[in-house]
Computed example of a mutant assay.
Amino acid sequence: MIKAVLFDLDGTLLINDLDLFMKNYFSLLREDFKKIGDEKELFKNLNIAIEKMLLNKGPKTNYEVFWDEFTKLTGKDRKNMEEFFNNFYSQKFPLLKDLSQARTNFYAKEVIERSFELGLKVVIATNAVFPIIAIEERLRWGELQNYPYDLITSMEKMHSCKPNVEYYKEILEKINVPPERAIMVGNDIKEDLSASKLGILTFLYNHENIFLNNIEYKPDFIGTLKDFFEILPLLAK
């Protein structure tokens, strides 16, 4: 019997064109970088700081690791740069909804609502490389923002990133649920199914019904969100 459901966001609950999203995200950011300095150098240092954050395993949060590295590389005042990024996420980031053709996935709301109805803890387990302001914005794109989630993983809260097993350990610690009582629902074989290393059940969202061979992690279940909606009451018994 499961006690918690961990949902990936992009490509699972929220459908968007990831290539378009990343292309336009970096394009908008580089345009704003031009206002404060050498955008090529800032962009290069941004990527270095992100890579450092992706390797984080604590004790600092992802947020602290990113800012320590980024300010060291750029020599920029952290307070000013935090304000710069907050402005970017509040003013420019929302444009990416249309640019990436983002929309809620079929049955996303239904599986979230069914999870709460069954008394389960619900986690938005998106990779913790974005600040909470950006994640909440993406939840709005899918009309998934008005739910009492037990946890939304963001760079401010988490001390590691997917696919590190420490990421999933921290989620379980924060919601106080043992691994065998949780299920991770996601579309990425490496990032989402790595939760199985801890004994967490996994559901691979695979709307194309592709048969998977020779993959590192085998999902416990595979299907669409409609399929997950249908088996969820059985898992929660």
Results as ranks from 00 to 15, higher is better:
207 H>S: 12
189 I>F: 07
67 W>H: 08
145 Q>P: 00
235 L>M: 08
180 E>P: 09
195 A>E: 01
9 L>P: 02
226 K>Y: 10
229 F>S: 02
123 V>I: 04
19 D>E: 13
202 T>F: 02
59 P>H: 02
196 S>H: 02
9 L>Y: 05
161 C>Y: 11
199 G>D: 03
213 N>M: 15
186 G>E: 10
86 N>L: 15
56 N>W: 05
131 P>C: 12
83 E>I: 09
102 A>G: 06
202 T>D: 01
33 F>C: 04
216 E>H: 04
231 I>L: 09
197 K>I: 00
141 W>D: 09
17 D>P: 05
33 F>R: 14
195 A>F: 02
82 E>T: 06
115 S>W: 11
141 W>G: 11
75 G>A: 05
134 A>S: 13
191 E>N: 09
63 Y>T: 11
220 D>F: 12
105 N>L: 04
173 E>H: 09
144 L>K: 04
120 L>N: 05
55 L>Y: 07
20 L>I: 11
232 L>M: 11
215 I>K: 04
87 N>R: 15
148 P>W: 05
63 Y>Q: 08
168 Y>W: 14
89 Y>R: 11
60 K>D: 09
201 L>K: 14
41 E>T: 11
87 N>K: 13
173 E>N: 06
83 E>D: 07
50 I>Y: 03
90 S>N: 13
156 E>M: 04
117 E>G: 11
91 Q>M: 10
123 V>C: 06
187 N>Q: 09
2 I>Q: 06
131 P>K: 06
24 N>G: 06
148 P>E: 08
217 Y>W: 10
7 F>I: 00
1 M>E: 10
232 L>Y: 12
152 I>C: 11
208 E>T: 15
212 L>W: 07
224 T>S: 10
193 L>E: 00
66 F>Q: 09
81 M>H: 07
172 L>S: 10
205 Y>N: 11
3 K>Y: 12
113 E>Y: 06
231 I>A: 00
222 I>D: 10
110 E>F: 04
178 P>M: 03
53 M>E: 03
6 L>R: 03
165 V>Q: 04
237 K>A: 09
52 K>V: 15
89 Y>I: 07
226 K>E: 15
65 V>D: 02
93 F>A: 12
168 Y>L: 03
61 T>W: 08
97 K>I: 12
2 I>D: 04
65 V>H: 03
226 K>L: 08
73 L>P: 00
72 K>I: 06
6 L>V: 05
227 D>L: 01
138 R>A: 10
37 G>A: 14
3 K>I: 00
37 G>E: 10
141 W>V: 14
124 I>Y: 15
96 L>W: 02
182 A>F: 07
122 V>G: 07
99 L>C: 01
2 I>L: 03
72 K>M: 09
174 K>Y: 09
40 K>Q: 04
122 V>N: 03
198 L>P: 00
107 Y>P: 01
198 L>N: 01
135 I>S: 13
26 F>R: 14
39 E>H: 14
52 K>W: 01
124 I>A: 12
